[in-house]
Design a binder for these strands. Sequence first.
DNA 1: CATGCGAATGCGAATACTTCTCATTATCCT
DNA 2: AGGATAATGAGAAGTATTCGCATTCGCATG
Lengths: 138, 138
Amino acid sequence: MESQDLKKAGLKATLPRLKILDILEHSRQRHLSAEDVYKALLEGGEDVGLATVYRVLTQFEAAGLVRRHHFDEGHSVFELELGEHHDHILCVKCGRVDEFYDETIEDRQQAIASKAGYSMTDHSLYIYGICPACQKRA
Amino acid sequence: MESQDLKKAGLKATLPRLKILDILEHSRQRHLSAEDVYKALLEGGEDVGLATVYRVLTQFEAAGLVRRHHFDEGHSVFELELGEHHDHILCVKCGRVDEFYDETIEDRQQAIASKAGYSMTDHSLYIYGICPACQKRA
DNA sequence: CATGCGAATGCGAATACTTCTCATTATCCT
DNA sequence: AGGATAATGAGAAGTATTCGCATTCGCATG
Ligand SMILES: [Mn+2]
Ligand SMILES: [Mn+2]
Ligand SMILES: [Zn+2]
Ligand SMILES: [Zn+2]
């Protein structure tokens, strides 16, 4: 029971929040838009408003349960925060998303921020390209 | 006269396009939103519609005259394409934008894309942090 | 386990940004 | 200069997201 996870994050264990957490955990795709989550709720027969989905996802983000990304698509996508930071590589043809982590890049970013006198708080790195499957299909 | 630049890009040299190009070239800030450009036009006494600003900026982007960025602010910002690729570091307090270029990061990105079997077409890297001035102000 | 208060929800309206439609106007080739 | 055609301005429409508010729910308490 993950009511505890929510309580720990200072959030009441309400039905919408539990259901949304469940969808984020068990969906086939790790990266979901608010609309995706909303559709999944409806398919599951749940009666949750879209505004609530947005509210809850934003709260989850603030609580560190979820991470929000901007994949150059005009809408936010969310994924469960599992502690291990990573960046993304996306196919511009089919929308496939892969993840990677590169120590060298992480280090260089810090160095660049320092050199510019900034105290770095975050970063976002997206690589866009054509995935193997879409290259064959061409 | 940069009518030639537009013609070369396959675009008619209309007044709105010339004015917008002028604003992009001579504004104190290199990174402008559509709204910024629109305001600058109005201040210059020009009668150009906001829809035209959006249309023209999109055409400029397609023609390679301008580059569009998504600075996690919910709207697009544009800057003149001057040939030299660079990435951005942004202050989360005051919105200041600095630019940088790092060969090591560029190389690593290529390597990561290749290893994942992608043919890389583009990338976007934003570093977020607190700028020197805002750190002192804290 | 019933009760009550504040927090959370669902709904529709509102907002922010961007694109579309279409009648009017401007550009540029001859 | 004249006409075919592309571009523009104004406002409506479209997305994604947030807000306002009456109603409902979670949960500490008795
Ligand atoms: Mn991810
Ligand atoms: Mn720049
Ligand atoms: Zn693909
Ligand atoms: Zn600053």
